[in-house]
């Protein structure tokens, strides 16, 4: 564990908590893509199956359980409890366009052709693009609430911090996982446009709105 990885995990945890609190406190999931949240639930479920087969540390297991539980809690709030506030009309990204190529890639490019390993690889590839329905929704409506942009910033920072972690681990531990690194770079690049808007607008107290 190094400082970048810890900071990344904290940013990730913060993102998940911000989202749950936003929905719970406002009693509304307006502006949040249910499709992205569904993809994240699939990501955590397929990646953390190793909870049952492989013990790393208490920290690792607790975080995995928290991420799985939080993703299902978010889905419950969006699709059941506050269903009436879910903005279907703007959440139209076709997720099969992500799921099909990601499945194919996981079957072709993996560390080992075994069920758990392919599911892990699938989850890494899917995570890298799972935010697209949310970013698509923001671009479609042309704006996002400040709390939603804080959520997106925390979630995007997490993988960017992991990139620093991987650079650190490469130099100091000789650890290198090309699958995670390439997917992590793709994931971080997808947020770049948002990061720019966040820094130039939201941090200066303005609402995140896109030019028409």
């Amino acid at each position: 564990m190094n400082i970048f990885r810890l900071a990344g995990d904290i940013a990730h945890l913060l993102a998940v908590i911000i989202l749950l609190l936003k929905i719970w406190k406002s009693r509304s999931c307006a502006g949040i893509s249910g499709r992205s949240q569904l993809l994240f639930a699939i990501v955590y479920t397929t990646r953390y199956l190793d909870l049952l087969t492989n013990f790393v540390s208490i920290y690792n297991s607790v975080m995995k359980v928290v991420f799985i539980a939080a993703s299902y809690a978010t889905l419950y709030l969006m699709y059941m409890k506050f269903k009436a506030t879910y903005d279907h009309n703007h959440d139209t990204f076709r997720i099969e366009f992500l799921l099909i190529p990601v499945t194919a890639l996981a079957l072709l490019v993996n560390h080992e052709f075994s069920v758990l390993e392919i599911l892990w690889t699938f989850s890494i590839y899917l995570e890298s693009v799972a935010i697209l329905p949310q970013l698509f929704m923001v671009s479609k409506t042309g704006e996002a609430e400040s709390i939603t942009s804080h959520y997106l910033f925390a979630l995007g920072s997490y993988r960017a911090l992991y990139l620093l972690n991987w650079i650190y681990r490469y130099y100091f531990e000789g650890f290198f996982d090309p699958i995670a690194v390439v997917a992590g770079v793709v994931q971080t690049v997808l947020y770049c446009d948002f990061f720019y808007l966040y820094i130039t607008k939201v941090l200066k107290g303005k609402k995140l709105s896109l030019p028409a």
Binding site: K64, E112, L116
Partner: peptide, 10 residues
């Protein structure tokens, strides 16, 4: 610990 079947990250 070179990736294979042992993923210690989240």
């Amino acid at each position: 610990k070179e990736g294979n079947n042992f993923h210690d990250e989240l």
